[in-house]
Each structure stands twice: as C-alpha cells, then as structure tokens.
Amino acid sequence: MRRLRRQLLFYSLLVAVWWLIADLEIWTPYLFPSPRGVLEALRWGFADKTFLVGLGISMKRIALGYGLSVALGVVLGCLIAASEFLKDTLGGTLLSLQSLPSLCWLPLAVLWFGLSEKAILFVVVMGSLLSVTINTEMGLRHVPKIYLMAGRNLGARGLGLIVHVLLPASLPHLVAGLKQGWAFAWRSLISGEMIFVSLGLGHLLMMGRDLNDVNQVVAVMVLIVAIGYVVDRLIFERFESRLRQKWGLSAAP
C-alpha cells in the first residue's frame, strides 16, 4: 500500500511538472507535447478506432511472431543442449548474433520479402529467437545431475526424461528466456512496423511524424509502453512469482 501511494505521488508529480513546462511554452506546442494534447490524441485515436485497429493488428503479429520464435527457440535450445557438436558450432554463432540489434535484420528482411507481413514477421522472430534459444539451452545445461539420476532411477527414459524431468527442472531459466524474448519481440515488432503502411502501432507512430502531430507520436508511445508493461506484469511476472513460490526460491509476496 505504501509502495502504491509512493508511486501514485511520483507519477502525479511527473505529470504536473510536464504540464507546467508545456504551459510555459518554452518550445512551440507542435514540437513539445502537452499532457492535455496527448490525452486528447489518445481519446481521438480510440474514438475513430485507428488505435484499436492498430492495436489489434500489432497484437496479431506479435502472437504469430512470438509464438513462432518460442516454438523454434525451445526446440533449437533443446538440440543445442543435447549435442556437444551443435553447442560448439551453432551455440557460439547464436551468442555472437545476440549482439546484433534486431533492427539490423530489417534491410535483409526487406530485400528478401519486400515490404510485407513476412518481412515484419522475420524481424520479430530474429529479434526474440536468440533469447529463447540461449536461455532454454542454459536452463537445460544447468539442470542438476541428481534430477536426471533420480528420473532414470524411477524409470523415466528418453522423451519421458526430457518432458517430465529436464524441461520442468529448467523452467525457471526457460521463463526468464520467454520473458526476455517477449520484450525483444515487442520492440522488434514496433521497429518493423515503421517501414511501411503496416497499420500497426509502429506505423501509427510514423504517421504522427508525417502529420507533424507530436501529440499522436507520444500517445502511441504511451500505448506501446503500456502494453509491454501489462504483458510483462500480468503474465510473466505472475507466472514467475508463482514458480518461485512453488520451488521455494523466495518467500510468498
């Protein structure tokens, strides 16, 4: 409760200061957004449904792209963890590729797929695949040997050992990877959507720039942050804390 009050105070103060600076008109209003203007832009955006449509389109894309990279990443991570050869070859490559900002895949994506859905999907997958893969592999590799021995001792073999021992034992790592993968996927999506008339949130952002509408730009930014935050908090954070509780990694909140 105390935390909530503190946060509430901080944010209202932040908005108040922003409001004040905007009202002072040190910079022209079409360059410096005001809280009122942003709120108005949000209201208009939702009223004429452009924001709703944009949101829907972006969510559909992220579901597809993120889903794809989770499926691919988990399988790939399992394969790399299972094979010394793959670890020495592909594993190293993936690790070095992780230093590549996902935006760098954009030119390649456009060359290969043109200005299309596929190009955006490609950027999203490339942006998040690596975190999922690397964390899956790390999780599997760090499973204490005793769990494997115990599993085999009790009759788990082959696929059963993977599904019932290895994967659940690496779940804390796996969830961290999924969470990080989500954050990367979301960012990659927005950048990918900026390249053409994609109708998603990224496109709305660029449209704001084209119309010289600083309020719309900031309004869409607020929307992007809000969604990222909500998914992180409501889905991943919740799942992680339940996991930690179950494993006894931390006291119940």
């Binding site: 769990y147 021995m149 115990a150």
Partner: peptide, 10 residues
C-alpha cells in the same frame, strides 16, 4: 540418493 533428488516442481 544422499541428496534425495526430489523434484521441487512437484
């Protein structure tokens, strides 16, 4: 086992 090897996720 000495370390038991019980599964914490169950």
């Amino acid at each position: 086992f000495q370390e038991l090897g019980l599964f914490p996720w169950l």
